[in-house]
Design a protein around this nucleic acid. Structure first.
Lengths: 233, 233
DNA sequence: AACACTAATAAGTATGCACTTATTAAGTCA
DNA sequence: TGACTTAATAAGTGCATACTTATTAGTGTT
């Protein structure tokens, strides 16, 4: 079958992906080299390269120099998570966002936080506890540690008016970000905050960021009952 | 300051990213056009384009034709999740993997499953319940629905010997995948399975896949106590 | 002032070419 | 036989160039 003169790396990608979806090439199989596809489809090798890179990025194929291109034999589900600023998340749902500062102190980082930062020992950092609310009801509780060494300016910010999250986003871009998700029993404190049962299961996100090697912030964000994290790939 | 004759799109990316990290350009600012960077750094425009695309992909900048390139004003945390096959996840930890089929039946999809598939009405599908075990202890419980319309071959597979997960991965590649994460109270059933308290909070992953428009499978995977999903970006 | 048309613009794409790099396979020597 | 060197290979990169496309800004018309 002669393939119609398709151009554009996207259509090339679809042609190749199609041959994988219809089992022309199965998991582990070696694909023809880029040059061959280029000739077959009547396009430049660079165009095939572009398409192949995209397939490799999404985990459909694996490429190795000299080794060639293979259909992934153990395809991992690869999804891109987009975690917006909490205010935007709430406003996008059509709810009114508000923010309440709960606690502010300088203290020594507990072991778990130092571990998140990969620090060998504890440091004095700024601890900020706050609640993000949707339509006046608690939506996410956050317990944040900010490095006053890396971000000394944070001490001059009025964190009752603006969330540390938003200030940092605007003023301290990060380089590296670790994420951790898990489930946690509500317990007495969160039960009272979210007005739920103590045994309710809550969704927790921990996010730790650096600029180069310097720790910026580590947040534990506890979402209210029913929270779901969703991706559409 | 004259930038040393750097080439390679990666170094170009680092130079530009550096100017964002050191606040030469702040959130919302417009960056010079690719051509300017190309001249300034002594490389081709295509190289700048490559670097810029990478920065755009990771959410650092936003690009629009004619509009130019801007530093993201509301940078979302963008992370890539890699969800491996459960067996690989367990073996990578150095544990011994085993698998136990618990239930197998054809039944009508409940509302939640039809909704995951975005189907207007219920369908008869194959329901497979199973446990993945690490060192003989339950690790993940999965409740899976497989479309016998899209994947009729599944009916001839010995699902006691091989997990539906692995068979599907090898035999039915997917096009689209929706993911959903949340926390759930263990309840009596899971408590007995995982030998934990009924009120333990468990981490749940729901994954639904299609090939083109045709539904393939929808799984609800309940992880044992202490499970964490981690990304390092 | 509101609307549509047009021109300018900057990113995006496609291509040919030359060169680089990682990796594997073959060949050579101890 | 095994360890080392060398050559072949296929993906990856960089560049010059030409062309396409989405979008904005300006122009003019009603």
């Amino acid at each position: 079958m002669t393939v119609m003169p398709r151009h554009s790396w996207k259509s090339v990608r679809e042609v190749i992906h199609g041959k994988i979806l219809d089992a022309t090439f199965g998991p582990g199989d070696k694909l023809p080299k880029d040059e061959v596809f280029a000739e077959e489809l009547g396009c430049a090798r660079a165009t095939v390269q572009r398409a192949m890179r995209d397939l490799a990025d999404s985990g459909v194929v694996e490429r190795r120099r000299k080794g060639g291109t293979h259909v992934s034999s153990a395809p991992v589900t690869r999804a891109t998570l987009n975690i917006p600023i909490t205010r935007h998340e709430i406003e996008k749902k059509g709810s009114v966002y508000s923010y309440q500062l709960i606690g502010l102190e300088e203290a020594e980082t507990p072991y778990a936080v130092s571990a998140n930062f990969e620090l060998p020992s504890a440091l004095i950092m700024l601890r900020v506890k706050a609640v993000h609310m949707a339509d006046g009801r608690p939506y996410i509780y956050e317990d944040r540690w900010v490095s006053t060494q890396t971000v000394p300016e944070i001490l001059n910010v009025d964190l009752a008016a603006e969330s540390a999250n938003e200030w940092l986003v605007r003023n301290k871009p990060y380089n590296r970000c670790d994420l951790r998700f898990y489930a946690q029993r509500a317990g007495a404190y969160h039960a009272r905050l979210f007005e739920c049962d103590e045994n309710e299961a809550l969704f927790v996100t921990e996010r730790t960021t650096w600029q180069n090697r310097a720790p910026i912030t580590s947040v534990k964000a506890v979402a209210g009952p029913g929270y779901q994290l969703i991706t559409r790939a």
